[in-house]
Structures are given as structure tokens and as C-alpha cells.
Design a protein around this nucleic acid. Structure first.
Lengths: 229, 229
DNA sequence: GAGTGGTCTAGACCACCTC
DNA sequence: AGGTGGTCTAGACCACTCT
């Protein structure tokens, strides 16, 4: 029984790698010969192989051919939802409090990270997110005021997080995760003892041209970040 | 100037979304009409749209068409290298100590997670990884002995982590990240105080048919996990 | 029922890179 | 120089699902 459809072809190739028909480092037959073997078009084999290449299972180079990765750097995908969605996906009610909102000159590392000249002021926003009324997440954000409209939105009614997603929209950025002991402020706001282990997310967000915002999210204890399967 | 190639088409579609030609929730023209507009084949538009769909920027349904996602769930990609590679990528020397290796009946949650019947024994392995001689990572692993060959490998010479990647190979699995206070054992081994915030990774790994291993990695303080751009 | 996206085909050209 | 993967085409059929 020959595989049908690119997903079955992908599965068959993966199976041969797993059972070591094609061990790590081995050269895999060319797309054309596999297409003949499987009785399908080369484009279909290509579709399957591209998927495996993106996953880091194989490495492809023109002319050199396709090899099974020796020490594969596996790739995992994370979903980054809006905070409200994340809480609601757990079946809980999301609320939030705007704790602070003011213009302020940021510390040098923040300014340089956002590509801001010296002396320029940013908007500083501090928000506490709650799930079923219990502290869930402490959000501290530096925001470039250029992205705000002349009549600034009311961040006590719509969370900054959600306003940015819906009004600034499609952006790129980098994300870092770490574990840190709760600062005095975080402990106070989240209702935990200082030094308690918190899961911290730090994001820098860019549009095509400029940095928009830098945010630190400190999750209440017990938070787990899961990869998509 | 019309875009050429699927990447330019993807960029053009993304641009129109960013400048709100197509605001959140809007219906995007069909593949066919875009193919006519861009003067290319429908498959080329499809390639671009599929990429944007995977990225979470648009949502596609047969017959219903393609819409700009209202509250996009952004997706980020993580690279999961072998531990040795991760240390060496930082320009440090990787070494490790095998602290324990024994057969043991696992606690019920572990057994059920690995699909193991009651009373079945697993291999328990504890390893300390070092970077430039300093504690880097504490690895505690349950391993299905079925994957081991009759003459078991010497895990004091090759780390379990690397042996599994090269000899069991291509697997799927799920990963969870959390922040936890150091247990007494972790504190002792990593040379920190109990309760100190540690970044913890928990992985379950499967081949096509069976669960292979369940591992808990506790990183020394200061560890950061970065997404790919 | 009909419109849309998902996939497949057979062929083609090209960029890249090893040989 | 030639083999390989990357991409594109024009057409086709099908699965899905909204109307």
C-alpha cells in the first residue's frame, strides 16, 4: 500500500527515518525518485519534505540533496493569545485594574532597546489582570506614545494589551521567558511573598519600521506555558 | 509594480492588513481574484495565504472565505537544541555528571502519563549538566527501558539526552514551561538556596506508537528562553 | 446548490551548489 | 557541468460548509 496525499508521504518518510532505514546523516533519495516510488507528482513529495525540513528533521540543499539531521534542533510552537482569551480559555472570568498610567523618561536600557533618543518620554502603564477575581498577571509596559491617537484610549476600560492588538495590529517581536523571584511590587500586587518563583514573559514588539512597546508580564504562581502539539 | 513570487505576495497581503485596507474581521478577496490581480497562478496565492494562516494572521474556511483574524493568537517558534549544543552555543564548555541510574517503579501519575501498566518498572536517571564547570541544569528522567538495547549504553560517557536524540531519534512530544522554587534536591545539586526561582522544562516524548521518556529540567538561575524571530 | 479553499498533476524554468 | 531543490503554471477534482 503506497501512501496517498502529502501527509501520508510525510508520515512514511518520517517512519523510515524512525526505523533507521535512513539513519541520521544519511542521504535521502531525491524528490523525483521518491515521486516515482510513491506514484505521485514531485510537488507532492516536495510538500511533505518541506514540512519535515521546517520541523528540523531533515536538511535540504540544492544539488547536495536531502539528509537526515544528525543532532536535530527540534522546533516547538507556542500560542501567544491575548491575555483575556487566555483566561477565558480556562473557563474563568477576566477582569483587570489599571494601576498606573503616566509619562516618564525610561531608564537607558529601555530607551536603547526601543530605539529612543535620550530624554524622550514614554508612556508607563501598570495593569493587574485577574482570573475569577484572583490575581493572575502583573503587566508593566513601556509604550511609544506615537502609536496612540490624539484622543488617547481609556486604558481603564480596554486593556492596553487588547487595544494594541486590535488597533496597532500585525507586528513582529521577540519574546523571552524566565523564572524570577517576585519583586517587592510584584509580591504586593499579586498577593504573594517576595522572592516567590514567578514565570516572567518579556516582549519587545515592532511594526515594520519602529519599536512599539516593551512589556514585562509576571504570572501568578502555578502558571504553565504549554507548546502546541 | 505587482508583487512577484509568493513571498512578495505574502508581504503585500500583510501590508494591506497592516495599513487596514483589510481591517480585522474583513473578508479578503478569494484566491482566484487575487491571482488575477497579481497576475499569477492561484497556487502561488495559496502558498502565501497558507503561510499567513499558519502564522495566525488570517483565518480560512472553505466556502466562507478568508478573514483577517480579529484577536490574533500569535505563534512563536522555539528552538529545542540538545543540551550540549545549547551550552556550546553560548561559548561555554559542556560537561555532565551522571548522579543516579536505577530501575524503579514510578509514581502513578508518571506511569499513567507514559501509558505504563501498574507495577511496571522504569529507568530513573538523574544528571547534572555543567557549563564551564558550573551547574547549569538538573535533569531528572523516567525512561522506558524498552528503548534501550540489550547492552545498555554507558550514560556516564554519553548523556541520556544526546543518546536518545541520536539513537531513538525522531519523536513527537509536548513541552511545558513553568517557574518553580528549587526543591531541596535541586538546591543541593545546583548550589542554590531552596525556594530560589528556577526555570523548569517538562517534556514527554513519544515515538509513533509509545511513550519513551518523561523529563524534568531545572535550569540554574538566570536562564532565559528566547523565541526565534 | 454553489463558492471557496485544499490538494494534486505534469510540466517547466531557475538558483544554487557540489562535483 | 549537471543534479538537486525551490518555485511557478494551468488545470483539475474534491471536501467542506454556508446559503
Amino acid at each position: 500500500m503506497t501512501p496517498q496525499g502529502w501527509e501520508q508521504i510525510k508520515a512514511e518518510i518520517l517512519r523510515r527515518i524512525q526505523v533507521r532505514d535512513w539513519p541520521p546523516g544519511a542521504l535521502i533519495p531525491s524528490e523525483e525518485s521518491l515521486a516515482i516510488e510513491f506514484g505521485c507528482a514531485r510537488a507532492t513529495v516536495n510538500r511533505a519534505m518541506r514540512d519535515l525540513s521546517v520541523a528540523g528533521v531533515i536538511e535540504r540543499r540544492r544539488k547536495a540533496g536531502t539528509r537526515v539531521t544528525v543532532l536535530p534542533v527540534r522546533r516547538a510552537t507556542l500560542a501567544i493569545p491575548v491575555i483575556r482569551q487566555e483566561v477565558e480559555a480556562r473557563g474563568q472570568v477576566h477582569t483587570f485594574h489599571l494601576l498606573a498610567e503616566r509619562r516618564e523618561v525610561p531608564p537607558v536600557p529601555v530607551a536603547s532597546r526601543l530605539g529612543l533618543g535620550p530624554g524622550g518620554a514614554l508612556v508607563w502603564i501598570e495593569t493587574l489582570h485577574l482570573a475569577d477575581g484572583r490575581p493572575w498577571l502583573h503587566e508593566q509596559r513601556w509604550l511609544d506614545p506615537q502609536v496612540l491617537p490624539v484622543d488617547a484610549p481609556d486604558f481603564s476600560a480596554v486593556s492596553v494589551n487588547e487595544w494594541l492588538v486590535t488597533h496597532v495590529g500585525y507586528t513582529t517581536g521577540d519574546i523571552a521567558f524566565s523564572a524570577e523571584g517576585a519583586t517587592a511590587r510584584e509580591a504586593e500586587v499579586l498577593g504573594v511573598l517576595p522572592g516567590v518563583a514567578l514565570f516572567v514573559t518579556e516582549r519587545t514588539t515592532w511594526t515594520a519600521t519602529q519599536a512599539i512597546t516593551l512589556v514585562r508580564l509576571a504570572h501568578a504562581p502555578g502558571y504553565r506555558l504549554q507548546t502546541l502539539v
